[in-house]
Amino acid sequence: MSTSLTPRPGTTPMLSAQNIARYFDVSKPLLQRMIAREGKRTLRAVDGLSFDIPKGTTLSLVGESGCGKSTVARLVVGLYGTSGGRVMFDGQDLSLARADSKQRSRMQMIFQDPYASLNPRWRVVDIVAEPIRAFGLLDDKQAILRRVGELLTQVGLSPLDGSKYPHEFSGGQRQRISIARALSSNPEFLVCDEPTSALDVSVQAQILNLMKELQTRLGLTYLFISHNLAVVRQVSDRIGVMYLGKLVELAPAESLFSRPRHPYTRALMEAIPDLEMTGRKRIPVGGEVPSPISPPPGCTFHPRCPLANERCRIEVPLMTLAGDAMVACHAVEEGRDQEGRGALPR
């Protein structure tokens, strides 16, 4: 079963996640467990996720903290091993691709925290050159320096910045250094884990513009992780909405915003403060995200869902096609969602 959206025939997606899962053992130590007579406890951070990312496009994953989106980012670059399912990188199994330095150099990652993602004891030139040296792309010292200068210019810094240390830069500038480092191995696939959420808005705009520009110029493929729907709208071709380790909706960006189908997607959009101050009344989602260690049975969203009924409490909904989107919701499948439509924005 493939839940990918309209895969173009004949082209291999850059990345294909097939029913991937990642569980973490969060049990107490053995001795404590024996005393308390508890069993093992498993956190299902990612629980059966499938998606494709065609080359040159951006797939975004959105969701609240703890929904597993950052874990997905780490799974697809091999920082975590999968507990189930498999990841295909350009048609090749990820573990094989990771073992081959040529394949490995085609994927890179940009991180959230610009203060933790650069080694504070290294000069910028060494930070940016690290992938070049690690993959042996250039071995002449002058050539490496020249290339680092090019990369820094490409991300809007000066080649002279190379001799400085990370602490001499602002958050936005550090994120540019991070991007320069990611680009230095000439990757085709970039995983961006909340790349702008630690930045101020005015700087966020700079970084988003830079990333879009680089995508057009270098033909990059992005997996973009964010909790900010407005940001996601600006960069994505397709968007997946995650809740408690599962995808609840996967749709083309425009379609998701013009016609959000899953009740959770709609709730997320309603929760965003209204900057235009149109005076629309917001109805906040009630309740909080349950613990992923003991998720509710059936559809995990049912305790907060206005459309939940008996079936939702028992049966786990599967991703099914609804128009141009894939949605995991009994209510949508049965057409029960149409009743509340009028109250929604847009």
Binding site: R74, V77, G78, L79, R98, S101, R104, S105, M107, Q108, M109, F111, Q112, D113, A116, S117, L118, N119, E130, P131, A134, F135, S178, R181, S185
Partner: peptide, 13 residues
């Protein structure tokens, strides 16, 4: 667990 170490792991050091 800091991201600069993860970045190094992504390149496969």
């Amino acid at each position: 667990n800091k991201e600069y170490v993860q970045a190094a792991r992504v390149i496969g050091l």
